[in-house]
Simulated scan of single mutants.
Amino acid sequence: MKWGVISTAKIGTEKVIPAMQESDQLEILAIAGRDLGKTREVAENLRIPRAYGSYEELLADPSIEAIYNPLPNHLHVEWTIKALEAGKHVLCEKPIGLDTTDAKRLIEARDKSGKQVLEAFMVRHHPQWVEARKIIESGQIGELTTVQSIFTYFNADPNNVRNKKDIGGGGLLDIGCYCIVGPRYVTGKEPIRVVSLMDKDPKFGTDRLVSGMLDFGSGLQASFVCGTQSAAVQRVHILGTEGRIEILMPFNPIPETRHSFALPGRNSRALTTHAKSNSRSAITIPCKVSPRPRYSRAKVRSITRSKTALPTCRFWMPWRVQPKPVAGKWFLHAKASAIDANRLIKEQKSRGNPAFSLSCGCYRSPDENGIACL
């Protein structure tokens, strides 16, 4: 399929376009921007054959079959509809619209054109989310009870598009949407009721902190917190009656690194999926329940592998049941592993992953199953 891109936005030029160009199922023929000089430079850097100085010119190109639309939020609906009217399929960045009126307009335009429109959410396609859904459907964590998500960062720049109310700024549309799509994807259901609480920035007028609860019926719930003026963190916990899944980097997984699931239980294990493929490997964490209630002994058979980078490496050991010599060996083992990990820290941070770290300790664990998270 022949593609065209409207806009030279960073999300497109730095993330999506390079990823699309790795596929043998499509070809990006053209890119359009408001500044023809800049657009030509981008096209040359990304090896895109054609550059247009307006979006209309690209839409008029008869060889283009589909459009990728990474324009600012308030322009998503307008230009997606124009692309549909020009006979093109559309992959539109999230959020695909700002309200239900936008959604209804898009549905009407899609049905009229006979073309397809897809909102660009990685959640529905990334291997770690696909694996999480498979685990849930297999019954490994029992009956699903709740999904908890958190996604925050700090950005108080008045010139940033995320802090401009009139063009669709705010945390809910920027990152809160992930916390809503994620539970919908893994449960395979739609909420029947939603309750939320919102705090707005007094200067920008945009939402800077939002919490919400989604009722999927039959006791199944999801809750989330998203914010644009809080310390950066992202995490998803999926709870069942017999176990849980923890996705450590759910929304911004670093390419070419592994991302872990923690499935606690008497035979806890961490499944890792590679960001660039569906391959996975398992690290076994054997657990023995201690005679003392609430405490246990856990040993990690394999801590790190050669040239393996994880978003965060954490080693948990319940200190009250560990003799000092064992604890000492644990620290030496972790230190030796850190030597390999440290070589990767600079590389990960240069890729924009400042959260990469290695920590170890020997301390009280409230989980009687002795969870070890890698």
Rank of each mutant, 00 (worst) to 15 (best):
residue 257 T to I: 13
residue 105 R to S: 11
residue 272 T to N: 10
residue 66 A to E: 00
residue 176 G to L: 09
residue 116 Q to W: 12
residue 92 C to P: 01
residue 86 A to N: 11
residue 290 S to V: 02
residue 279 S to D: 08
residue 250 P to S: 07
residue 258 R to T: 06
residue 114 G to L: 13
residue 336 A to R: 12
residue 27 E to Q: 11
residue 97 G to M: 01
residue 111 D to A: 08
residue 32 A to N: 06
residue 312 T to I: 13
residue 81 I to M: 04
residue 145 T to A: 05
residue 274 H to C: 05
residue 24 D to T: 05
residue 79 W to N: 05
residue 237 H to Q: 10
residue 291 P to M: 13
residue 164 K to T: 09
residue 96 I to H: 11
residue 8 T to S: 01
residue 107 I to F: 01
residue 12 G to H: 10
residue 254 I to G: 02
residue 164 K to P: 05
residue 74 H to C: 04
residue 47 R to P: 00
residue 201 D to A: 00
residue 293 P to A: 10
residue 30 A to W: 14
residue 84 L to A: 08
residue 359 S to G: 13
residue 10 K to I: 13
residue 62 P to C: 10
residue 9 A to R: 12
residue 283 I to M: 08
residue 215 D to K: 07
residue 147 V to H: 10
residue 71 L to D: 15
residue 29 L to H: 09
residue 95 P to I: 10
residue 115 K to V: 08
residue 51 A to S: 15
residue 13 T to S: 09
residue 269 R to C: 05
residue 117 V to P: 08
residue 48 I to E: 11
residue 194 V to T: 13
residue 368 E to F: 01
residue 337 S to G: 15
residue 208 R to V: 09
residue 10 K to H: 14
residue 372 A to M: 05
residue 154 F to Y: 12
residue 35 D to P: 03
residue 220 L to G: 02
residue 116 Q to L: 15
residue 177 C to K: 12
residue 252 N to F: 05
residue 226 C to L: 11
residue 203 K to G: 13
residue 301 R to Q: 09
residue 12 G to P: 00
residue 209 L to D: 06
residue 38 K to F: 00
residue 286 P to G: 04
residue 65 E to M: 06
residue 323 P to N: 06
residue 271 L to F: 06
residue 260 S to G: 11
residue 294 R to G: 12
residue 325 P to S: 06
residue 343 R to I: 08
residue 296 S to Q: 09
residue 362 C to K: 10
residue 147 V to Y: 10
residue 331 F to P: 01
residue 150 I to A: 14
residue 246 E to R: 02
residue 298 A to W: 02
residue 202 P to Y: 04
residue 45 N to F: 03
residue 239 L to H: 07
residue 342 N to Q: 12
residue 69 N to P: 05
residue 61 D to N: 09
residue 25 Q to N: 09
residue 109 A to H: 10
residue 28 I to D: 01
residue 90 V to Y: 04
residue 347 E to F: 01
residue 357 S to G: 14
residue 313 C to H: 12
residue 74 H to E: 05
residue 20 M to E: 02
residue 6 I to N: 04
residue 365 S to K: 08
residue 290 S to T: 11
